[in-house]
Design a protein around this nucleic acid. Structure first.
Length: 587
RNA sequence: GGUCCCGUAGCUCAGUAGGAUAGAGCAAUUGAUUCCUAAUCAAUAGGUCGGUGGUUCGAAUCCACUCGGGAUCACCA
């Protein structure tokens, strides 16, 4: 346990129980927190415990605070406990404590801060899930990065994470894809196909697919009936498109553990399919009925017609409206497949299912969460995180793209132009539910305007210092193992202690970012930590005493190298979660 | 019309389970390079947290209403 804040929170809760406060209601300790105070003058740790308890115990908060403060003062390493304002308990820890804490970072290296939250809980993160009808476009980018980083974060925090991609390989758009590919196949055999008809995919990425089909099947498919060639071309098309998508994802550094086929949910064996079995289950629970849906309130569509369909009573589990499970032609809807998919995930033992979706799916959230509740009977939780739109800019000018002409900006173009690291970091340098502006020029700029470079440079700077130390002090062992033995008590500058305090926040950042599913918090933290390092480095310009390397003083040099090396470990650990490199050199 | 998201400094945004005097970066002004990478740093200035009311010891944060911006809305996927 490296989380100082969690340690003290636990300790305070123990003390509260020892106080044996009288209360009519049961004391609720869950609201007690320990956090870094905004103002460093208030100490290192601040707790709201007394104020939370005051009302329940019907006592003066400052009186309770005093009782707790007395106990806290006797704790090792606590140098000062004060009561402030309405009843805050402010705790100051000794420099010796912080200097000792640095040892923990050194010992744990890149695993420092991890494995404290998840406790092995099985979590499924579903992200991207783009339709396999073409290469990925830039709109998919944000969800891919947010999902992947969240999966990394949860995994680091100790969850058992499965990264999943739901392949929409059933339904009408696959038939359109296959017909489009078939056209390219005929083209590959020398036929003049003219303009691509309305309703088919015009993209040139289908040309190689047509050529491959021609190569493999010759003219055999040409004379075949629709029902004979269609399955063959469908399969080849899906495989081909998924190949493109996987390659795009790989360029972005995104990898999934499971590609789950929608088609597999429709497959009937011994008279039932996964979907039909799920519907049966919901029927047993009394959540399925035949009926007609009311038209949307307000704007009633012109072509509205009442239809009797098989419906899911999702209003019973928190949705606004009941939802169709079957179309009027008796086929299952897309939504029914989704329900079946949740059922499958639930059967695979996931306690938490997270979906990363684009903002255009906002209307879909309630019904998905409702399905999760219904299928698992409350045992599993479905959380949906929406990613708002990304607006592209070039030199401040919006980049327009038209999807209609097939002339959209692909994910690959963006990655090729600005690099994987910049794309990933920038996509995470914003709350995911806020829209994001992405300027090609800005994200490739090599300055502190650009947080990616700022953070990476801090990491590289540490390695630069290490290289310099190796040159200046050739006989000194500065390997990580040697640094673990450094006498860190030689670190006395406020800036140095401040860096350790910032590092001590890392476990807390990981914990809270993982719990709230907000990987962007990590990106901001890394920026702050990098900033402290740059600042301390620059202090050495004015005050040579504060430089990291002192040729005549090996113990001090070792202590300071231990400090900056620890910083680099956390930066590397955080950058790995974000999915960006931690370069050792930037020239 | 329903639902969801956003509204914080001139600009782009953070704000951690409701906590103390609301924070960064950019832009502006001033300063620091014989030096471990100036791709950096230090300092100054900048705010009725869209508005009104409520909840309470305490609200940018929670609730209600309201204004402005965006997304979405029955058999598609």
């Amino acid at each position: 346990m490296s989380n100082v804040f969690a340690i003290f929170e636990q300790r305070i809760k123990e003390f509260v129980q020892q106080l044996d406060l009288k209360s009519d209601v049961e004391l609720n300790l869950s609201r007690i927190t320990v956090e870094p105070p905004r103002d460093p003058a208030h100490g290192n740790l601040a707790s709201n415990a007394a104020m939370v308890l005051a009302k329940l115990a019907k006592q003066n908060p400052r009186a309770i605070a005093q009782l707790l403060a007395d106990k806290l003062s006797d704790e090792p390493n606590v140098t000062n406990v004060s009561i402030a304002g309405p009843g805050f308990i402010n705790i100051t820890l000794s420099d010796e404590y912080w200097v000792h804490h640095l040892k923990e970072v050194l010992d744990q290296g890149k695993s420092y801060g991890g494995n404290a939250t998840g406790d092995g809980l099985k979590v499924n993160v579903e992200y991207v899930s783009a339709n396999p009808t073409g290469p990925m476009h830039v709109g998919h980018c944000r969800g891919a990065v947010v999902g992947d980083a969240l999966a990394n974060l949860l995994s680091f925090a100790g969850y058992d994470v499965t990264r999943e991609y739901y392949t929409n390989d059933a339904g009408g758009q696959i038939e359109v894809l296959a017909r489009s590919a078939y056209l390219r196949y005929r083209e590959a055999l020398g036929e003049d196909i003219g303009a691509i008809p309305e309703g088919l995919y015009p993209g040139e990425y289908l040309i190689p697919l047509g050529e491959a089909l021609a190569k493999q099947h010759g003219e055999a498919l040409l004379k075949a009936d629709d029902e004979d060639w269609l399955p063959i071309v469908k399969k080849a098309s899906i495989d081909g498109m998924m190949g493109l998508i996987r390659a795009d994802l790989a360029a972005l550094g995104v990898h999934h553990d499971v590609f789950f086929s929608e088609r597999s949910l429709h497959k009937v064996e011994n008279g039932s399919s996964p979907i039909s079995r799920t519907v049966d289950r919901l029927t047993e629970m009394g959540l399925v009925y035949k009926g007609t849906l009311p038209p949307p309130k307000g704007a009633k569509p012109d072509d509205w017609e009442d239809r009797e369909q098989l419906l899911f009573r999702s209003t019973d589990v928190g949705d606004d409206m009941d939802r169709a499970l079957k179309k009027s032609n008796d086929d299952f809807t897309y939504f029914a497949a989704d329900v079946g998919y949740f059922h499958d995930k639930f059967d695979r033992g996931f306690k938490e299912m997270i979906l990363i979706l684009g903002a255009d799916h906002s209307g879909y959230v309630k019904r998905l969460e409702a399905v999760g509740r219904a299928i698992s009977d409350g045992a599993s939780k479905v959380t949906v995180r929406l990613c708002q739109l990304v607006k592209l800019f070039r030199e401040g000018q919006p980049v327009t793209m038209s999807k209609r002409s097939g002339n959209f900006i692909t994910l690959r173009e963006v990655v090729d132009e600005v690099g994987r690291d910049a794309v990933r970091f920038m996509m995470l340098y914003r709350k995911n539910d806020a829209p994001l502006d992405f300027d090609f020029a800005k994200v490739t700029e090599q300055s502190k305007d650009n947080p990616v470079f700022y953070v990476q440079y801090a990491h590289a700077r540490v390695y630069s210092v290490m290289r310099q130390a190796a040159r200046d002090m050739g006989d000194l062992d500065i390997s990580p193992n040697a640094l673990k033995k450094a006498d860190t008590s030689l670190l006395t500058d406020d800036g140095e202690i401040g860096i350790i305090k910032k590092m001590a926040e890392y476990p807390r950042v990981i914990d809270s970012a993982a719990r709230s599913h907000e990987p962007h918090r990590l990106a901001f933290y890394l920026y702050e930590l990098a900033s402290l390092l740059h600042s301390q480095w620059n202090k050495g310009r004015d005050l040579p005493d504060l430089r990291f390397i002192h040729q005549e003083n090996a113990p001090l040099t070792l202590a300071r190298l231990a400090l900056v090396y620890s910083v680099s470990c956390i930066l590397a650990s955080g950058l790995a979660i974000i999915g960006a490199d931690a370069p050792e050199e930037m020239r």
